[in-house]
Nucleic acid binder design. Sequence first.
DNA 1: TCCGTCATATATAGAGTTGATATATATCGA
DNA 2: TCGATATATATCAACTCTATATATGACGGA
Lengths: 182, 182
Amino acid sequence: MNVKTICLAILTQGETTGYDIRKRSTEGDYAYFMEASFGSIYPALSKLEEEAYVTSRTVAQEGKPSKRVYKITPTGREFFINSLYDELNDDVFRSEFLLFLRFVEDLPRSLVEKRVNERIAKCNDAIENVKKLEEEFTKPSERWVLNFGQHCMRSARQYLIDNKQEIIALAKQEDVPARAAE
Amino acid sequence: MNVKTICLAILTQGETTGYDIRKRSTEGDYAYFMEASFGSIYPALSKLEEEAYVTSRTVAQEGKPSKRVYKITPTGREFFINSLYDELNDDVFRSEFLLFLRFVEDLPRSLVEKRVNERIAKCNDAIENVKKLEEEFTKPSERWVLNFGQHCMRSARQYLIDNKQEIIALAKQEDVPARAAE
DNA sequence: TCCGTCATATATAGAGTTGATATATATCGA
DNA sequence: TCGATATATATCAACTCTATATATGACGGA
């Protein structure tokens, strides 16, 4: 799945701008399973316009820079829907947090506790964010996907809460005696 | 987290080759939270050698091509452990499957059912794979991480099983009448 | 025996992507 | 007034992936 496909997917649901595509893919309703940056979105939209899968027009705005609004063409829509019949690539999960945890034996206890708590806090934020999105969405498939996401995040959070003492206990004892000797 | 860091992380646990780093990051014990391809691993190892974070030697093998075995230096080890004190980047999750599911209203029921079953099968494979890995690993932090991964995968699989009929029901009815009219 | 496939192993080119930065306008709060 | 934040487009260097090339040997089937 490349950025062109992501753009087409979002454009299938209505006209929008490169700025908005980026926002939705990093903070909005698409953020939990895809991402794209400006450096890939703008070139992707240009290429899609060359290929006649989208058209664009410039819209002036008061108090804001004028924006370039993209719209999917019938050809583009057809191309996108057809691509949904292709074999799906595997899900990708990457976590610096889990890499970090594999080395807790070499790290001070306070640092490990801090990072685990930060991770739990991020889970909380993400769950709250999805809850808000669910209120906005009415399309049944979108709600199903958001519920699935929320379920997975709650499950991960619960595991962290239930087992955090165990992983923290594996970390190195702090050098408390050294400081006490000062 | 870049590929250089992944290489150092794996090399921290013993000497190995570029080929093996790729294998472990795509199929082995690191596969569930990171990934790297040949095109990034070999250049990364070269740069790490330039920077004196690793050394290499060529080892001839019978019945196999000779291999280049890399070893982390004390400087490299120190650099890696220090980098574990840095702020952690957010976890990344990308799923073509979830993008696909947002468009089930436009897709035939048989295709949706097929893809959901494929996803459940992949979950089963992944869970079995992690179980095997857990038998091999004795380091407590590694087991904790694998258990966490297994917990998350089981939870996702259960949600898919429990709610698959609901999402399949949202898909388009097949064009059975059209075929019957032939 | 020959051929294709698979596994081991290194390497690279081209395409795609990220992360950082530049530019411009406007609002909001300190 | 100054910095931060938000909207909005755009680009570039560095990085990464996908696909391919090269080489060796094992294994199985035709």
